[in-house]
Every structure is written in structure tokens, then in C-alpha cells.
Simulated scan of single mutants.
Amino acid sequence: MTVGIREAYRRALDGCAAQVQRVGPGQWRDPTPCSGWDVRTLVNHLVQECLFVPELLSGRSVAEVGDLFEGDLLGDDPVKAFDVAAAAAVRATAPPDVLGRVVRLSFGDVPCEEYLTELFADALIHTWDVATAVGRPVRLDPELVRLCTEWFAGAEADDTQALGEHPGTDPLTRLLAAWGRHG
């Protein structure tokens, strides 16, 4: 990545925050492109991911964190919950040695850089999901789309989601199709 993963993750969260902040009071129950999820459920998922970051980067395992972040994490102010959780996640990625750490996930240990890359991709795609759910066109940061596309192309994807199966389309459309979205 030409942009470091910490910066890419921060920028993806910033873009997502901009969309979350624009969700209207009557739009939290609108369906999203994520099957079975409404906007509130999707944002709750993102908050949960963000809240795990400081815990996991401090050396705790998913098992040790347990069900601490289960249930409704949004309360009466979903925007504030997202902003607070995203800021905590970004702060947790700041230490100079963070990328050398190992993150203890439910399926095994992974390098921190890999963990943050997955979080970055999730935040970027879900930015599009939130905007789409509430009927707003969104232009994702082209540099982040390129970085995510490069990462996804290098990751092991099943044949039905391979980026190469969407030739001749712009990078965002190809990336969205690889993630099962139609942009």
C-alpha cells in the first residue's frame, strides 16, 4: 500500500462517519445492501468492530473480551456512539510498534496489519452501504478504492467474487461487485 494501513483505516472511518452523521431520524430502520441488516444494525456492527480494536491491539484475545460488546451499542445517539468508537479505534492504531503486534482473533493469530486491512475494507464498503441505504450517492475516495481493490485481488476470494470477473468496469463497480454489491 502506498498509503499506510493506519492512514487508510482512519480515512475509511472518516468517510463512514460522514455518511453516518447524515442519516436522518427516520432512516435508521431502512434496509441496507447487507441482507437482513437495517442502517442501525449496520452501524452497530461498525461500532462493535471499532470497540474491539483497542482491546485486541492491547493484547487481549476475542475470547478474553467475550460478549462485552454484544447487543445495542448505539443507545439514543447512534452518531455519537459511532464517532466515539471510531476515534478510540484510530487512537489504538497510533503507537509506533502497533503494526508489529499479533492480534488474537477467534480463528487464530494474525498480524496486526492484516487485521487492520480487513477493518479498513469493511469500513470502506459499509460507507457505501450506509449511503446507499438512505438514498444518497456516495463517491468513495478513489485512492482507498484502489488500495482495497489491490488488497482484495491479493486475498483468497472464492471464484464467484473474484475481481477479474467484472472486466471493463470502473474500479468502484468492480470492488462493489466483488463484495456482492451492485453499484
Results as ranks from 00 to 15, higher is better:
Ala18Lys: 15
Ile5Gln: 08
Ala131Lys: 12
Trp151His: 14
Ala18Leu: 12
Ile5Gly: 09
Ile125Glu: 02
Ala177Arg: 15
Phe82Pro: 01
Arg136Lys: 10
Arg10Leu: 08
Phe69Lys: 01
Ala121Glu: 10
Glu143Thr: 13
Trp128Gly: 04
Glu64Ser: 04
Gly180Phe: 07
Thr117Gln: 15
Ala18Phe: 07
Ile125Pro: 03
Gly36Asp: 08
Ala8Arg: 08
Asp67Cys: 00
Ala63Val: 13
Val47Gln: 02
Thr169His: 13
Arg6Met: 09
His126Trp: 05
Thr41Trp: 03
Pro137Leu: 00
Pro171Glu: 05
Gln161Tyr: 13
Glu143Ile: 06
Ala88Cys: 02
Glu118Trp: 11
Val79Trp: 00
Arg6Thr: 15
Ser35Phe: 00
Tyr115Gln: 02
Asp122Lys: 03
Gly154Asn: 00
Cys34Leu: 10
Asp129Asn: 09
Asp77Gln: 11
Arg11Val: 05
Asp38Ser: 07
Pro96Arg: 11
Leu51Pro: 03
Arg104Gly: 07
Arg60Lys: 12
Cys34Met: 05
Glu156Gly: 14
Val84Leu: 13
Glu70Cys: 00
Arg101Glu: 01
Ala89Glu: 01
Leu68Cys: 11
Asp38Arg: 09
Ala88Gly: 09
Ser58Thr: 07
Thr173Gln: 05
Asp170Pro: 01
Pro167Phe: 03
Leu13Met: 09
Arg40Leu: 10
Gly71Met: 00
Gln161Trp: 11
Leu99Phe: 03
Glu118Lys: 04
Leu163Trp: 04
Asp30Ala: 14
Thr93Cys: 15
Asp141Met: 02
Gly164Thr: 09
Ala89Ile: 01
Ala85His: 01
Ala92Pro: 02
Trp128Pro: 05
Phe82Asp: 01
Pro96Asp: 13
Glu49Ala: 12
Thr169Gln: 15
Gly183Asn: 05
Val43Phe: 09
Asp83Ser: 08
Cys16Lys: 04
Arg60Ile: 00
Leu56Val: 10
Ala133Asp: 04
Arg181Leu: 05
